[in-house]
């Protein structure tokens, strides 16, 4: 199992750490160099963390666990009106992005009201393509509870709900977790108290994602999603020219490739690994609901009988 870890340290000799992680069979997902500082988001095999820690100590850098790394999160607002945007929704999305997740904002067509809210089939399928959905709801306890009874119908991924009142998760129907102290806020969240609330949200989502990881580890995928990313980057030239943010977006159990499905799905299916298998043997290459992108879902070990 791979652990998501963030390294913050000096640029000097940071490539030693990069090479160590790659040699150990881990992956570097993102590298941001800011003047003399470097931030690395990486996945490290859980058994080798001690070696990486020792190296980080030698380089005087800091290692922290970043459970949001390598996940794709949908932040869902009831609509795209001024009631929810740009504050709060964007704040949440941006904060989670800083923690290493890729966030997509979804504005529902008919998500308003406690009695009249609904989710269209397309919205449901789109949200289901993510790892976690964060529903950003409003101020009133009664509305949050009533709305939760019907709004998340058909959503199979964990649902994290935010709102103003302090409720227990058990009180919010169909929710995996609930985070209070949010509500409908029409200003930029920058006070220390508000930032603590955002920290709490990141922590809760981290826990939810850890549970998902544990669940996946019970029947591991035949191929790790970061490996898919690495192979596509090495073998498909067109991905380099893609101008989309994160052309290959990692998910906990899959990857979204931002290339047109019709043109590229055969090429991706026929990618050959050094182990001698092709992509279509270890993963399904599916059309994504998001534009005409490609969604790759690894087949579980129980289906193929091997892990590469």
């Amino acid at each position: 199992m791979l652990e998501p870890i963030m390294y913050v340290g000096g640029v000097y000799k940071h490539n030693h750490l990069v090479e160590l992680v790659e040699d150990l069979g881990g992956y570097i997902l993102q590298k941001n160099v800011m003047q003399t500082e470097v931030v690395l988001l990486m996945l490290v095999p859980i058994n080798d963390i001690a070696i990486v820690e020792a190296k980080a100590k030698e380089l005087l850098g800091k290692l922290t666990r970043a459970p949001l790394t390598g996940s794709e999160i949908a932040t869902v607002a009831p609509t795209l009106a001024y009631h929810h945007l740009p504050h709060l929704d964007c704040d949440v999305a941006e904060f989670l992005r800083k923690q290493g997740a890729k966030t997509n904002m979804v504005g529902l067509a008919r998500g308003v009201g406690k009695r009249i809210c609904q989710l269209t089939a397309y919205e449901r399928d789109l949200i289901n393509e993510h790892d976690v959905a964060v529903f950003i709801l409003g101020n009133y306890e009664h509305c949050i509870i009533e709305k939760s009874k019907r709004l998340y119908e058909g959503i199979e991924i964990p649902v994290v709900v935010t709102g103003a009142p302090e409720l227990r998760t058990e009180d919010v129907p169909n929710a995996t977790a609930y985070v209070g102290n949010f509500g409908r806020i029409l200003h930029h969240m920058r006070h220390s108290e508000e930032l603590r609330t955002l920290d709490k949200l990141a922590e809760v989502i981290g826990k939810v994602l850890d549970d998902v990881r544990k669940e996946i580890a019970k029947d591991p995928p035949s191929i790790a999603p970061p490996r898919i990313k690495k192979e596509i980057e090495e073998q498909v030239q067109e991905i380099i020219d893609s101008l989309h943010p994160l052309p290959i977006t990692l998910q906990l159990n899959g990857a979204r490739v931002k290339l047109p499905y019709e043109e590229f799905h055969e090429m991706l299916e026929n990618i050959r690994f050094v182990e001698g298998v092709t992509m279509k043997e270890v993963a399904q290459v599916l059309p994504s609901k998001m534009r005409n992108f490609i969604l790759i879902k690894p087949r579980p070990k129980s289906e193929t009988g091997f892990v590469i």
């Binding site: 009831p78 009106a81 009631h83 009201g113 009249i116 809210c117």
Partner: peptide, 9 residues
């Protein structure tokens, strides 16, 4: 457009 909750149509 901003204060009244959106669902209150």
């Amino acid at each position: 457009l901003r204060i009244i909750p959106e669902g209150f149509r």
